[in-house]
Design a protein around this nucleic acid. Sequence first.
DNA 1: TCAATTATAATAGTATTGCTATCGTTATGG
DNA 2: CCATAACGATAGCAATACTATTATAATTGA
Lengths: 222, 222
Amino acid sequence: MKNLNIQIEVNPELYSKNPDSSELGRKIITNSIELMNEIGFESFTFKKLGLRIKSPESSIYRYFDNKHTLLLYLTSWYWAWTEYQLVFATSNISSSQEKLIRSIEILTKPVLIDNSISYVNEVLLCQIIFSESLKAYYTKNVDEENKKGCFKAYKSVVQRVSDMILEIKADFKYPHMLISTVIEGAHQQKYFAEHLPALTDLSKTKDSITQFYTELVFSLLK
Amino acid sequence: MKNLNIQIEVNPELYSKNPDSSELGRKIITNSIELMNEIGFESFTFKKLGLRIKSPESSIYRYFDNKHTLLLYLTSWYWAWTEYQLVFATSNISSSQEKLIRSIEILTKPVLIDNSISYVNEVLLCQIIFSESLKAYYTKNVDEENKKGCFKAYKSVVQRVSDMILEIKADFKYPHMLISTVIEGAHQQKYFAEHLPALTDLSKTKDSITQFYTELVFSLLK
DNA sequence: TCAATTATAATAGTATTGCTATCGTTATGG
DNA sequence: CCATAACGATAGCAATACTATTATAATTGA
């Protein structure tokens, strides 16, 4: 994985002009990830981003319709990237159990190393996913956006891991439900540990999240 | 429960003037629940609410600092109300198992009957909780608001059910984590079933959510 | 019961947000 | 070296998210 510099493809519905195609576009992505991390999605505006990259807002609007679409783009990028990771981590492994274990680890552990090759800082992006990505699909436009395929990358990841579950227990009724519960749950528990510790049982740094969800999955599949 | 007309207490940090104390205040609550359901939290403004109740926005600002605080108020109300439900549903029941089963049912099933006594429509409020309440704590002010006790009611519910888990399995390490996973998971699965069905395994109307999370909990506690 | 407080309505105003439009200049690539 | 796309600079506009002021109505408490 590390140095392959894989091209991540994002659904063209999510941009007006492909940010990957120009210097300015890549600058927009790099800096929006940083800025969103610093001030949060609500306070983030194209004006502030424009100031940061010394370009007028109107130039940013040429790439993305609005900040919501930009968030959709970032989440879509993240899930496409995660799917690559899943494929790599599970290739050439025969044991279904082992594949599932590794997948859960990828899905529940925050990214800690930025490969620094692309203009995307994966560590920061991961933090955005954990604390902002819910806002990408809890809106009144979900259905419309879903139809356009805006969530395809996420669904593809869920599907892939669901298939592993069925390899282990073919008659299990709720593979998608279980995996989306694990993914979203792990993200939330990380957030809770940092901000609402009464809702979890984690000391701030400990990464027993992966352990918890792994146990949860396998105890249910027994 | 039904006809007791219990007074729900909400943390005074969450309002400037108690909406429960005046006709206008109650009108604000009733109508904000309806309006937020209709147009969603993002599109909801005090101006629109003011038009609906035929009062100027400035009057609404006397009760709530902004729409975010109003959302916090509504979620807090919901959790306080849910805690009453939990207490009633589990009183006079000796079996810890049975108490937990009933609690999970309350936490994972959407409210379907409005008791129609108070000015709060619990069915609609429940829908807001399911699709908007995440936005109440995924903000850059969480820590500050948490300190002021804005999430006390939610935490109290989680604590109460965690205690039941420990009654069943005293050495279980992650009771809070498990319960918050169940609560948030159930809400999300309901939302997914309606809008992103690829992330779940539910036919739109079926309420196997409760069944799934009950199994999940008890298989982990075995 | 009347003065004093409080609640609300009506209105105005301001800074910021979330865009759209225009136009001149710079790249760039065929 | 010309055509066209990309970008910067600037303007402007409607909506949002408030704050402030004043007048009137309601309440209440001495």
